[in-house]
Design a protein around this nucleic acid. Structure first.
Length: 555
RNA sequence: GGGCGUGUGGCCUAGUCUGGAUAGGGCGGCAGCCUCCUAAGCUGUAGGUCGGGGGUUCAAAUCCCCUCACGCCCGCCA
């Protein structure tokens, strides 16, 4: 479809002009594709671009037509390419096939790590930015046909967890029957931190726990595991609510127990960059880092970084492509991790960083209890969605409305997050979270439900594609772009592209819906429009699924 | 102090990597559209020269330099 024609035209342009770049861009309102190659050739040919453009057009016209299925026109210095009439029809028919979006066989195996929040309290609105970005990327990889394993790296032996365990030992705080495990852990963690702040001498007790757990003291290990498991059970519920799925939870402590961390330290030990001071640390100044990179504390325990390196070596050896989704606060340690891995001659991960979500009153903090939990967000948005559904569809039974509301709520939450570029810091806003209009997930779901409704009423029809009206052509062309967008997402690791695409697709479907009657059309025109509706419905459904949003048939 | 990121109409945001044709959307405002396939919809309208300044270029929101503002990071925390 779009991507095939793009590369064909680019090939002909570079081939015929001798330029190594085709200077192709999307043509916007002017054409399907446009090239500014005449500008770049102006110098070497010593002629005005307006003069060169028609010459190139004449030269390539026949090949472009026969090989790439496009017409060339000249507008001043610009070369415009318009796909021939059959393009839109082919796009419509391609979308109806089951393999739509599949980018071809690839043996490449990808491991994608996301969320990996510390198990010291519930996931909050900042953590789920990680979840939504990661899960959407994973869905894109899979839709494109890439084998992908999604992992959650469980930090089960850090200081924060030691504080939680210490808190459990100190307070007698039974889990109330209705309380989620992760929320319970947070209350223990918050209280423990308060006490540690009041009496810093207690910190020694936490240090002791960390030494014991690393040494493998059975009782301590059991306590750590119990606390982390309790929190993780809560996470699983939240992640499940968000339609986010991990294939594997990898426990950090396993890299101590299986000896990997020890072996990593031994390998570093042989490097000239390794320094034995009170701590065992790496001198990364040659890689541009001022501070030394500590791997083992003076008390003999390893730091997070050492275990993380062991984890990444394991991933790098078992997968071709290794992707981590991390908060922007991890930029420095991410760079240090990569540098350390390269020193050992191991593969470094591709890291997708996202900026923070803050509250209007400031940044979030689990320790201070200053956060909006994902569970609370989901509850509130569901409540609002239920009201909306009830207003619009009062005739539906309660369970039906509940079900739609749940899907609408997750659509609103996931879309709100994924539509914003990861590098943009955001401020959480309840009004925005509860808005289901226009640039929202429910808006796209609505376009899909509309298409379903039409198809349901249509009954049998013949599958033929014959788009002609402007809104039909625009819609069909947008449908044909889906594989191209998918490819860009997994290349650039920017799931926001898919959100923009989905919105444009819904816009174009709505425009068509308002401009051209479908069920009231006659004969062949009715069949053709129904086929376009079917292609739209399938594409919308595919895109929604790839965004992790339920493609509800009615709402 | 150093590093990284962000700065686009009242608010939110796309485009910035790969410089090109009048800077796209949404919210809010204003004016319209439900005897026609779900109005979570559609149409029209007002509002921006892309933080500021310099530079490169035929061409800059996009590249370079300086500068301001905001965020994040610079632990024997994770």
């Amino acid at each position: 479809m779009f991507n095939e024609r793009l590369s064909l035209i680019a090939g002909i342009l570079t081939d015929e002009t001798g330029s190594d770049d085709a200077f192709l861009t999307e043509g916007g309102e002017h054409a399907d594709l446009a090239s500014t190659i005449a500008f770049s050739l102006a110098k070497q040919r010593k002629a005005a671009p307006q003069k060169i453009a028609p010459e190139i057009a004449t030269q390539i016209r026949d090949r472009i037509k026969s090989e790439a299925g496009a017409d060339v026109t000249v507008s001043g210095p610009y070369l415009n390419f318009s796909f021939t009439d059959d393009y839109a029809d082919k796009a419509v028919l391609a979308a109806i096939k089951p393999e739509f979006g599949y980018l071809g066989a690839s043996q490449q195996r990808t491991v994608l790590e996301h969320t990996s929040a510390n198990p010291n309290g519930p996931l909050h609105v900042g953590h789920i930015r990680n979840t939504v970005i990661g899960d959407t990327l994973a869905r894109c990889f899979r839709k494109a046909g890439r084998k992908t394993e999604v992992q959650y790296y469980v930090n089960d032996m850090g200081r924060q967890i030691a504080i939680v365990v210490w808190g459990f030992n100190r307070f007698n705080m039974p889990l109330e029957s209705r309380e989620k495990g992760d929320h319970h852990v947070a209350s223990v963690y918050i209280d423990a931190n308060r006490d540690l702040k009041e009496d810093p001498s207690l910190t020694a007790e936490v240090d002791r726990l960390m030494q014991l757990v690393e040494a493998g003291d059975p009782d301590t290990v059991r306590h750590f595991r119990a606390a982390v498991t309790l929190c993780l059970e809560g996470f699983r519920v939240t992640l499940d609510d968000l339609n986010a799925k991990h294939d594997r939870f990898v426990w950090e402590s396993d890299f101590i127990r299986n000896g990997d961390t020890g072996r990593v330290i031994a390998r570093f030990d042989r490097l000239p960059e390794c320094r034995h001071e009170e701590t065992l640390n790496l001198d990364l100044t040659s890689c541009g880092f001022e501070k030394s990179y500590v791997l083992r504390r003076s008390d003999g325990t390893t730091v997070y970084a050492a275990r993380d390196i062991a984890y990444h070596i394991w991933k790098g050896r078992n997968f071709d492509r290794m992707i981590d989704v991390l908060g922007a606060d991890h930029k420095l340690i991410g760079a240090q991790l990569s540098a350390a891995l390269r020193l050992l001659g191991e593969k470094a991960p591709e890291i997708v960083f996202f900026e923070f979500v803050s509250l209007p009153e400031g940044s979030m903090s689990t320790r201070a209890g200053k956060f909006i939990s994902a569970d609370e967000l989901i509850t509130q948005v569901k409540k609002k969605a239920f009201q909306e559904v009830t207003t619009r569809r009062p005739e539906l039974p309660d369970e039906e409305r509940e079900k739609i509301a749940a899907s609408v709520a997750i659509a609103a939450i996931r879309y709100d997050i994924v539509k914003v570029s990861a590098e943009k810091a955001t401020v959480f806003d309840w009004d925005e979270a509860l808005d289901f209009e226009r640039q929202s997930g429910p808006y796209i779901q609505y376009a899909h439900a509309r298409a379903c409704s039409i198809l349901e009423k249509a009954g049998e029809f013949k599958t033929v594609s014959r788009v002609s009206m402007p809104t039909e052509v625009a819609l069909a062309k947008q449908i044909g772009k889906f594989p191209y967008i998918l490819e860009r997402v997994i290349t650039d690791l920017k799931p926001a592209y898919l959100a923009t695409y989905a919105r444009d697709l819904a816009d174009l479907f709505n425009a068509f819906y308002h401009a051209e009657p479908v069920l009231k059309a006659d004969g062949a025109e009715r069949d053709a429009r129904l086929t376009l509706v079917l292609a739209s419905q399938i594409t919308l459904k595919t895109v929604l699924e790839t965004l992790g949003i339920d493609a509800v048939r009615s709402m």
